[in-house]
Design a binder for these strands. Structure first.
Lengths: 230, 230
DNA sequence: CACTATCGGATAGCTAAACTATCCATGTCT
DNA sequence: AGACATGGATAGTTTAGCTATCCGATAGTG
C-alpha cells in the first residue's frame, strides 16, 4: 500500500475527523503511551505529520486501533500474530479470495504445543470425514493437520472415543461457515470484506463458544434434571 | 480429597506403574524442572515419598500432567486458570452435575478485555435469541453476558449486522452440545466424566475451529469458484 | 561397599510479551 | 506569555512460564 493510499485509508477521503493522539486515546480508551507503542511495533501507521512534531489521526486509525484491541482481547491473539494478519489485510497486491484464506489461516493455528506428529488413526479419521463430507482435505492441509493433531491429543489423554463427535461437529461447522460466508458476501469494499473476515473469525469463535456453553447447560439440565447429581 | 484418596487416585489402586520423576519426564516429554515447577505451583500433587528424598509417581500423575499440558497447549489456558479448573475437578464434595457447570464456566470466560458493559441492543438480541430457542438465559447469566459483550464489540467495530448470524450459530451450537453431552454420558466414573468435560471443552473448541475453517474454505470455493477474486 | 548418576527440595535467574514512565525539544491554545 | 499537549526516543516494569544451580541423600551397579 503506497503512502498516499495509506493516508487516504487512514485519514479518510476528505480528511474529516482528523484528531491528535490525545483525542484518539480518549475515543478508544487506549492510553497514549500504548498507542505510541503500537505505532513503534508497526501495528498502527503513524499519524500524518502536519508539522515536525504534530501529527493527526483519522477514522482509519481509530478503526484499526479498535480492531487491534478486539483481536488482542476477544481473540486472545499476540501482537506478533496481529501484525501478521494486518500485513495480509494491508497487502493490496493479491485478490480478496486468496487473502481470505490467508487471514483465516493466520487467525487459526493457535498453539500446536503438545503437537509432534498426528497419529495414523487421527489422520485416517480426518481423511474419512473429508470423504463423507465431500470436502477437499488433502494430507498437508493446515486445518486438516491441526484437526488430526487435536484428535491425537485426545487419544493421548485417553479420550480417543471423542472422535465419534466429529460428524456432528462437522455438520455444525458447515452451518456456521454458511452463515459466515453469507455475512461476508454482504460486505462491499475490499477493506470491509477482509476486516469482516477477521472480525468473523475472531468474534465468531467467541460467540460460538458462549452459545455452545449455553446449549450445553440446557442439554445437561434436560438430561440430568436440573440439579440432580449424575 | 483426603491424602489417602489422592494417593489411590494418583498412584493407582495397586501402586502399579509407580516411577520416579525422571521416568515421568521421559514418558510425557515434560522436563524435570518443569514438573517440579508444576508441583510447586500446586497443579500436580507431589510424588509419594518412599524415603526422605525419594518419591514415586503413578498413572494418575501422568494423566494429570498430560491434562495440564493439553489445557496449556491446545486450550491456551494460563496456569492460573488451569489451577482453578483442577481444584474443581478435585473437589469431591459436590455432585457431578454442578461441577460440570463450574468446569465449563471456568474453562470459558477468556478475556472480556474490550469489555465494559454490553449495549442494550446486544442484551436484547441475546434475550430474544434465548426466547426463540427456549433457552434459560436470564440477565446476569455468565455466558449470556459474554455473548452480549461480544456482540457489543462487533458493534463498536462497525459490524453490528454480524448479529444476523446468531440463529445459525445457535442451531449449530445445539448440535455440538448434544454431541458433547452424549459423549460425556458414555463415560463411567466421576473422574472420567469431569476430565471428559474439560477435554471436551478444550479439544472440542480446537476441533470445531479447524472444522469451521475447512468448511469456510469449501464454501468460499463453492461461491467464488476456487481461485477467482471477489 | 565404593562410586556415580539421579533424586527431592529450595532458591535464584532467565526470557518474552505487553506495556508504562520519563525525558526533551517543539507546538498549540488562550 | 505561559500552561499544557505533542512526537519521538530510551529505559524501566510486571507477569507468565519456565530454567539453572546448588545441596545433601539415596539408588543402582559392579
Amino acid at each position: 500500500m503506497s503512502g498516499r493510499e495509506l493516508a487516504r485509508t487512514f485519514l479518510g477521503a476528505k480528511g474529516e475527523q482528523a484528531v491528535r493522539i490525545g483525542e484518539l486515546s480518549r475515543r478508544t480508551g487506549v492510553s497514549v503511551p500504548t498507542i505510541k507503542f503500537y505505532v513503534r511495533e508497526g501495528l498502527l501507521p503513524a499519524g500524518e505529520l502536519t508539522s515536525p512534531n504534530q501529527a493527526s489521526y483519522g477514522d482509519g486509525h481509530e478503526r484499526r486501533l479498535r480492531l487491534i484491541r478486539a483481536m488482542l482481547g476477544v481473540g486472545g491473539l499476540s501482537l506478533a500474530r496481529i501484525g501478521e494478519i494486518l500485513a495480509v489485510v494491508d497487502d493490496t497486491s493479491q485478490p480478496v479470495f486468496k487473502l481470505m484464506g490467508e487471514v483465516a489461516g493466520t487467525v487459526a493455528a493457535p498453539s500446536l504445543v503438545g503437537s509432534g506428529e498426528p497419529s495414523d488413526a487421527a489422520r485416517e479419521s480426518v481423511a474419512a470425514l473429508g470423504e463423507r463430507r465431500g470436502w477437499h482435505v488433502p494430507p498437508g492441509h493446515p486445518d486438516g493437520d491441526a484437526l488430526a493433531r487435536t484428535l491425537t491429543e485426545a487419544e493421548r489423554l485417553g479420550h480417543e472415543d471423542f472422535a465419534v463427535a466429529l460428524d456432528a461437529y462437522a455438520e455444525a461447522a458447515e452451518k456456521v461457515a454458511e452463515a459466515d460466508l453469507s455475512y461476508v458476501r454482504g460486505l462491499g469494499a475490499r477493506d470491509d470484506v477482509l476486516e469482516g473476515v477477521v472480525v468473523g473469525m475472531m468474534l465468531g469463535d467467541a460467540m460460538f463458544g458462549s452459545l455452545r456453553r449455553i446449549a450445553q447447560a440446557e442439554e445437561t439440565g434436560r438430561i440430568y434434571g436440573r440439579g440432580e447429581g449424575a
